[in-house]
């Protein structure tokens, strides 16, 4: 039965097409349509725009000059939030190579478990247009690490920030080009939220309650200030 349902549907869909076109012809027609124009950026500067949108997404953001500074920032964050040094992170070689002792952080490498308060991901990309970060599921960042903990911390390299969602996909295409398509590609833009009751926005629906992004690299401090200036008073 299943096969006949499939065949019947395809037959009906083919009926509707004026003339069955060659795949190359269809691809040409599609290329003519091109891509959409991205959203207007809140700032001309790519990184300032990224920061502004992370903040607009109800995330928090810090700048760190290098990985050492990033580790220290993570240590401060964990101590302030949970009076702990514990953290779960995926088996990402970039994370394994960080100077954890400098920040007094004790990471456990692997998949997040229900009791874990904080997880850290190293993002593949940041997207300025939406203030989103992009992760792939896999050993380096199990899908649940983005979802189960109370707090989700994300490192993103300055040079991995792209302007638009189309730019993000251009990079993703390169990274997945060898045929190693990940199980999941996740664009994350903020702590989980809901407005299902009284249309009132509450952070921390089923996923993380807090989302903290650390932008790694030499970003001038005023980028953060400028980005904040765009926001209404906190």
């Amino acid at each position: 039965m299943a096969e006949s349902v499939r065949a019947a549907l395809f037959a009906r869909l083919r009926e509707r097409s004026p003339a069955p076109a060659e795949p190359a012809e269809i691809a040409r027609a599609l290329a003519t349509i091109g891509y959409a124009t991205a959203a207007r950026m809140p700032h001309a500067d790519l990184h300032t725009a990224f920061i502004a949108n992370v903040l607009a997404n109800k995330g928090t953001l810090e700048l760190a000059l290098d990985r050492g500074a990033a580790v220290r920032a993570i240590g401060r964050y964990l101590y302030k939030r949970f009076r702990t040094h514990k953290l779960v992170a995926g088996n990402d070689p970039r994370l394994a190579a960080m100077p954890w002792r400098d920040g007094g952080v004790l990471p456990r490498f692997g998949a997040a478990e229900p009791g874990d308060a904080a997880a850290l991901s190293y993002a593949r990309l940041g997207v300025a247009e939406t203030g989103a970060i992009v992760t792939f599921t896999g050993r380096a960042n199990p899908g649940r690490n983005n979802l189960l903990p109370e707090d989700h911390l994300v490192l993103v390299n300055r040079e991995d920030v792209v302007a638009t969602l189309e730019d993000a996909w251009a990079k993703i295409r390169i990274e997945t080009g060898a045929g190693a398509w990940p199980r999941g590609i996740q664009f994350i833009a903020g702590p989980s939220s809901t407005a299902d009751v009284e249309a009132q926005l509450v952070l921390g629906a089923h996923g993380p309650c807090r989302w903290h992004v650390i932008l790694v690299g030499d970003t001038p401090a005023q980028a953060l200030e400028q980005a904040r200036g765009e926001l209404p008073e906190a």
Partner: peptide, 19 residues
Amino acid sequence: SHTCYTSFYSGPRREDDVD
């Protein structure tokens, strides 16, 4: 301007996946 989660799922667990 963006939802919190926009995910693209391709299938079952891969060799590289732990979940």
